[in-house]
Design a protein around this nucleic acid. Structure first.
Lengths: 205, 205
DNA sequence: CTGATAATGAACGCGCTGTTGAGTAATGTC
DNA sequence: GACATTACTCAACAGCGCGTTCATTATCAG
């Protein structure tokens, strides 16, 4: 059991709360430690008892998210030799869990994945997709002859998925995590055009 | 004819050159006006004769890129009633021209589109894809019944294309702009999996 | 209650900012 | 080539946020 001093918990929670609120009002570069501490009603020196600077604060909050993702992934234990059925059975609930978690953290994610957010964190989240898409595809296509390098395929899909995620988080009335998971898998396998049911008019092209 | 004083041209060019070099060494937030002017061997005050601050500098350089894109797009004059053949005839050379231009500007773009770059600019470039994909799809699928909203389709493809672009710019030995254009169109229409030729093993899924 | 430690308030030097005013050097024009 | 124009330099300015310090106070856990 880790017993953290209540004063620390309170201070950190307040800082996080104020920080996210500020990020909703202005880009990260405009946020100052002064602002955070003033609005949080704590001494500026206190901030530096917990964080090196505002970059460190951002990074620690991001790290919380990444750690949770990693924990969920370890729990699942994917295997690239999984059959298609196993892929469905394991990968799908994993996606749902992750998406539900994203939804819980949406106040922070919405800000930090946006155009006023942190591109480094965007890239880290994308890498989660890269890992999963690779892991999922590699098992299915050994020795297949491909028109394009698999790396390119993975890049394409991972950016697309990240985009859909960002788009989803920004919606007020979202589809459920289940629905989105189905859609993402569908889009990945069939591709956007065919998945949408408009393959015909392009087939000739 | 716009005759800009040579001194201004020299100063601005030097600032741009140094600025890009600095961005290759450190993230934008670490770059100071001091650094730029010292390395460029100009007075700090001179910087402020041309730019409001370092943000303004970044924005002006980004705007140069966007203006060129816009100019090329106006020249092309797409029409959403274009037939598939017209799409090919007009859209394809447009993409090639844009990609070739991107390649020329790769020193700047590589830095500003990267994970240490500017997410706002990323978004603006993506909007170029959004505009084109929408314009291209809408003409082809009026009254078609879609499984997913077209907005989602466009989001998916635009993020994917942006990703491929970034990936392409980062390569040392690139495919040609022609090859990439063919690939992007192929991926868009067929989707990543089918375009890669591995549709079979997923069809059952 | 008591020892430990988190938080406060005030002050410090530091570096970058954006601006100013007077003087210098380069430019385009006639 | 001489001239008026203006880009640039140099030095100094106040302002602000930073990150650190130290003595003091408040709050915690046991």
């Amino acid at each position: 059991m880790e017993k953290v001093d209540r004063r620390i918990q309170r201070t950190k929670a307040k800082i996080k709360e104020v920080f996210i609120a500020l990020l909703q009002e202005m880009p990260f570069e405009k946020v100052t430690v002064r602002m955070i501490t003033e609005r949080a009603n704590i001494n500026r020196g206190t901030f530096y008892l917990h964080y090196l600077d505002k970059f460190d604060l951002l990074e620690q909050l991001e790290q919380e998210i990444l750690c949770t993702i990693e924990a969920v992934m370890k729990e699942m234990q994917f295997d690239e030799r999984d059959t298609l059925q196993e892929v469905k059975d394991k990968r799908f609930p994993f996606m749902v869990r992750i998406l539900e978690f994203f939804q819980e953290e949406q106040a922070f994610l919405n800000v930090v994945l946006s155009e006023h957010g942190d591109p480094i964190f965007n890239e880290k989240i994308r890498q989660v997709f890269v890992y999963n898409v690779e892991n999922m595809l590699v098992g299915q296509l050994r020795a297949q002859q491909l028109n394009y390098p698999i790396e390119l395929l993975v890049t394409y899909i991972s950016y697309a998925n990240l985009g859909i995620l960002i788009h989803w988080l920004q919606q007020d009335e979202k589809q459920s995590a289940q629905e989105l998971s189905i859609m993402l898998l569908d889009l990945m396998v069939k591709g956007p055009v065919e998945a949408s049911g408009l393959a015909r008019c392009f087939k000739e092209a």
